[in-house]
Design a protein around this nucleic acid. Structure first.
Lengths: 242, 242
DNA sequence: GCCGATTTGTCCGTATGTATC
DNA sequence: CGATACATACGGACAAATCGG
């Protein structure tokens, strides 16, 4: 679907940077040069460059040029800045994913769940508890709440494979924004039952609210990770205070 | 400094959203309307809206409008998506910051430190160990490596207050990009010496490489947080796979 | 220090496409 | 179908920062 011109330029430059066609700290071709190379307007080139900058790949410098500040990643990272399904991140890290459904239920939000999840009071939800394996080791315990109204046909079989794939491919759903919070919490009885905690007494916890293209929240998830296999990566850009 | 037109529009709309001039799920005025309100071109309005979208404040919907998906934050969060100094985040959360210098040294990178920090071999660095208090409780242990070449005048007195403020205000430095990694690690002897770990046997750890406007890495920091006072917030946007 | 060439930053107006209603 | 709304793209203009002569 994304065959926009700026997007192909973005992907092309990203590829070239990742394969080190430009060395670390080297300047990329000037915008003027790229305009001629890609046969497009300057705005289009600039849009591609802006995305690379927000990825932490390049650093534009007024009057000087655009510097490559990409360094290849050494370690595998489970979670990254974008929105990724469990399946996708497992494949990215060349690991074998597996999911076991522990619970599959329906419920209506009460006062307490409503406040915690961000869903309005009285909303019909699916509640799932899923155990996630990587290379046959149980590492993540997921508690999911999904908006039933938008996916009445959800089944345990789908949840065992990939709900995101079902939503995007089968239902033509578009997933857009996810608001996430990372904390560290004490292990619970449930954690210890299903995960080999190896003396750790806490978990890395990511809670997230996820929205579709209509701006409707359709998911609230708490993802509890075994701490020794958890890594989250992020690129931040400084905004001038004022 | 930032008196760009798109930036003032961005700040104005952000303010209006935060003060709930638009209610949750309400549509903002159309781009056309905003063009007339602010007396600018459509591109300028769109740029402001794009920033709000990447902040997770709004959701643009083709053919429909731009929906407000901002929900006021309930809990205090220590760390957010942007780049923030310890001082700034303490003030944002209305907490009293204090810093105690545990170590202040100079060193040259060897093989091992070079690989870990991302600085080239043989680079002259400042190494600092700092204990951070919030409301007089020691909560964070920082290990900082700073590029000496760019800040030869750094002193323990400056480090006790705010290095970022010194860099930005005194040296006219511009801080831009920060690449961060979040993990959970076991407590060390040093952690236990300075922090009241209250039975927790692990720490929330953020390591970061920070770059200035010239694309030069000037900092590598490992920030070790007491888990019960750690929270990291983030907004992610889904990119179509392909 | 000055000047001109280069490069990125901001902004504008317009045209066309696509999705929604 | 037409009107409205956002998405993409173009070309041009000027400003601001940098660099070399």
């Amino acid at each position: 679907m994304p065959k926009a011109k700026y997007d192909t330029i973005y992907r092309d430059l990203k590829e070239k940077i990742e394969t080190e066609c430009f060395s670390y700290q080297e300047l990329l071709p000037s915008e003027h040069t790229l305009v001629q190379e890609y046969g497009c307007s300057r705005n289009t080139v600039r849009r591609a460059l802006a995305e690379l900058a927000s990825d932490g790949y390049v650093q534009p410098m007024q009057g000087k040029g655009v510097r490559n500040i990409f360094q290849p990643i050494t370690q595998t990272s489970f979670t990254v800045g974008g929105i990724e399904s469990f399946l996708e991140s497992a494949l990215r890290n060349h690991q074998k994913p597996r999911t076991k459904i522990l619970q599959f239920a329906e419920l209506e939000t009460g006062e307490k769940i409503s406040r915690r999840t961000g869903f309005p009071l009285g909303t019909q939800l699916f509640y799932l508890q899923r155990l996630r394996y990587l290379d046959d080791v149980p590492l993540i315990l997921d508690h999911n709440y999904f908006l039933k109204e938008l996916m009445p046909g959800l089944t345990p079989e789908i949840a065992e494979h990939s709900i995101y794939e079902y939503l995007e491919q089968t239902l033509g759903f578009t997933i857009t924004t996810s608001k996430r919070t990372m904390t560290v919490e004490r292990v619970t009885q449930v954690d210890e039952t299903y995960l080999d905690m190896n003396d750790y007494n806490c978990m890395a916890v990511i809670t997230s609210q996820t929205f579709n293209a209509d701006g409707i929240q359709f998911e609230y998830t708490q993802s509890r990770h075994r701490p020794d296999h958890f890594q989250f990566q992020d690129v931040a850009v400084r905004k001038k205070p004022g």
